[in-house]
Amino acid sequence: MSEHKQTENNPQGKDKKMVIAMGSIGLICALLIVLTYQGTFASIEKNKAEALEKAIFKVLPGISKTKAFQLNQDQTFSETNATDPKIPKVYAGYDSIGQLKGIAVQANGKGYGEVLNLLYGYDIDNQKIVGFYVLESKETPGIGDKIEKEDFLANFKAMDAALNDDFTKIKNEITTVKHGEKTNDWQIDGITGATITSRAVGNILSMSSNQWMPLIYKNKKSFLINDKSK
């Protein structure tokens, strides 16, 4: 440090200048980001809601309308219009004559890069996952993003998610196996080269199904809509 002092006239002043420069650039940048976030928040939320609606129709084949239900504190479900993302919600899908076809559940978890935001369709009567859609992912292009491709989606055409006998847990945990080793309906055929991403999907689904399916099954009746009585 003493040598440094000799060569430079005023190192403290320089250090100070650097700190100030970096600090103020950081401030400007932070300000810009916050402003943009504020400015675009409303339309992003609106777009996301629309995209979610479209996705619900994708994961629940054969439905013609959906309704959102929020999970209350006492573990029951009730219809809701709330948009606050903090409230846990599921989406029920009905066919044209108002019969309940299934429930779409959103599930988040860590992927390879950033958060994976998934949506899957759950058929209560058959206790199967009938559809899967990636809402948001930043997985490696060409490798991790194969989870959005047809081959991988084929896993979720009729995935076994049966509950155990006392309806508290999934009987057979959803797991990801190596590519080509899938033998049972509750297994996900992994993607060669994208082990982490495909395993992440398995973990997210396993956690989410254990959390939601017993609740949904217990409150099955609250999703039914009685058009006749109204």
């Binding site: 970096m22 650039i25 950081g26 940048c29 675009t40 992003i44």
Partner: peptide
């Protein structure tokens, strides 16, 4: 470091803007 910070900021801005335009 400053250039990267500035560039990253505008990338974040365009990222939000793009989401607002079309998901």
């Amino acid at each position: 470091a400053s250039y990267i910070l500035i560039i990253a900021t505008f990338v974040t801005v365009i990222d939000y803007a793009m989401q607002a335009i079309s998901i």
